[in-house]
Amino acid sequence: MKSTKFTPVPLTKAETDKKWWEIGDFFRRNSLWLLMYCTGCCAIELPPAMTSAYDMERLGMGPMATPRQADILLVSGYLSLKTLRRLIYTYEQMSEPRYVVALGSCPINGGIYHDSHAVINQLDQYIPVDVYVAGCMPNTEAVMNGFVDLMDQIKHKRANGWKKYHENYSWYKANQITSLGEVDVHDEFHE
């Protein structure tokens, strides 16, 4: 007869790491802090999401002041070339793991600005996006739903944008440079 006594199976390093990662994921998905990069008109949907109407704090979410502290980079709307450069800079300053949520149809395909000379059309050419919330503008329920989706993705280990950015760094960089061009003069007025 087989012994019913509990014999602990020694875990390999990879397995322990995975366990820790899962525990970490629990904390991460229940405490998502936003850095609101309010570039477009979609930003107007955020106040109701934060205040008493939808109260995102009950999901453990809240606004933060700087990219270092935040988990989510919230891109709310269209991105001109000037803001894109700063968005990438901000994204690279964030602590890992980091997630990107994009609001509105503008970051998906350009939205109503699709033929503008100054606005980029597809955000995920430049930085990886984990969740898109479509609509012009998406209503607040949709925005909240997007956040819940992100939590779900984190739970199922599908929110891997930040890893992709590392893996395909050269591809992203090339795209960024094609659109923005190299910067020759390094001072405050030329960038």
Partner: peptide, 23 residues
């Protein structure tokens, strides 16, 4: 007039921060 977070939210926040890779 909001729900407010769970009472142990602050613990989650702290452990999350500890689990992240900062600079």
């Amino acid at each position: 007039k909001r729900h407010g977070p769970r009472w142990y939210q602050e613990f989650i926040d702290i452990f999350k921060l500890l689990s992240k890779r900062g600079i």
